[in-house]
Amino acid sequence: MRSIVAILAFAAILYGSICMVQLTIPFLQFKPTVDFLNSKRLIYHLDWWRYSFYIHVFSSPLVIVTGLLQFNRFSIHRKPKFHRITGMMYIGTLVFIAAPSGFLMGLYANGSYPTQISFTLLSLLWIFTTVMAYRKVKQRKYVSHGRWMIRSYALTLSAISLRFFTFLIGYFNIPLYPAEAYIVVSYSSWMVNLLLAEWLIYLNYPERLMKK
């Protein structure tokens, strides 16, 4: 049963990852009228924000995919070199590229202060959990490393969760003004993920993953 749930979760995340990659394709036009950028016309002219946006959008799919590859028992035990390389790609891209650019974007997030606080806090927690995962693996504390990686990847998946919760609000016609809805999804997208991460940790998921 647990194996089936793990396979379904992997498939769902993989599908979400593919969708995220597809969402980035229109931004290759580098025009201010594309999708989300329509709401950013007042700040699109700011070079630092515009560069941060494109850096974040194009680096995040790499973080999602390389992060997903870390939770595979076969690569951990049979392909440790592959596990290390993709792990370093995940950590390096996240800590030095995706999260800092996300933090800068968060300073001008739609919805004013409530959402700006949410997204900047998310970026800081994203970096913190990932750095902790790196520290633990360097100390050869592999179970603790696994726990912090789960937390880190839970925050990585907030990009997918945000869109999923936005869809749910629209599908169930929840009576919220657009600004209120965006505040709700901006917090729930990463808070719910962290709660699920702690639940997995409570179930000793990292320990089971690392057992041969």
Rank of each mutant, 00 (worst) to 15 (best):
residue 4 I to L: 14
residue 50 R to G: 02
residue 56 H to S: 05
residue 30 F to S: 05
residue 94 L to Q: 00
residue 101 S to L: 05
residue 30 F to Q: 10
residue 39 S to Q: 09
residue 12 A to S: 13
residue 154 A to I: 00
residue 110 N to C: 02
residue 208 R to Y: 12
residue 23 L to R: 12
residue 45 H to F: 14
residue 14 L to E: 04
residue 102 G to R: 00
residue 26 P to F: 07
residue 184 V to T: 10
residue 46 L to E: 08
residue 45 H to Y: 15
residue 59 S to F: 06
residue 67 G to I: 05
residue 126 W to L: 07
residue 147 R to V: 03
residue 15 Y to I: 14
residue 36 F to E: 15
residue 84 R to Y: 06
residue 102 G to Y: 03
residue 190 W to V: 04
residue 114 P to D: 13
residue 148 W to N: 09
residue 96 F to D: 09
residue 207 E to M: 10
residue 126 W to G: 05
residue 12 A to N: 08
residue 189 S to Q: 08
residue 117 I to T: 09
residue 119 F to Y: 11
residue 133 A to F: 00
residue 133 A to C: 02
residue 2 R to N: 15
residue 51 Y to F: 14
residue 1 M to W: 08
residue 69 L to T: 07
residue 165 F to C: 02
residue 174 I to E: 11
residue 148 W to D: 08
residue 69 L to C: 09
residue 148 W to T: 01
residue 41 R to F: 07
residue 55 I to S: 08
residue 114 P to H: 09
residue 72 N to E: 06
residue 22 Q to M: 14
residue 195 L to Y: 06
residue 204 N to I: 07
residue 172 F to N: 06
residue 108 Y to E: 08
residue 149 M to T: 06
residue 33 T to D: 15
residue 153 Y to R: 08
residue 81 K to C: 04
residue 111 G to W: 14
residue 100 P to K: 08
residue 175 P to Q: 11
residue 202 Y to A: 14
residue 192 V to K: 01
residue 107 L to C: 04
residue 58 F to Q: 09
residue 204 N to L: 06
residue 169 I to C: 11
residue 110 N to A: 11
residue 89 M to T: 09
residue 59 S to K: 05
residue 111 G to A: 13
residue 21 V to S: 14
residue 189 S to F: 05
residue 123 S to D: 10
residue 24 T to G: 06
residue 159 A to R: 00
residue 51 Y to G: 06
residue 121 L to V: 09
residue 83 H to F: 01
residue 127 I to P: 00
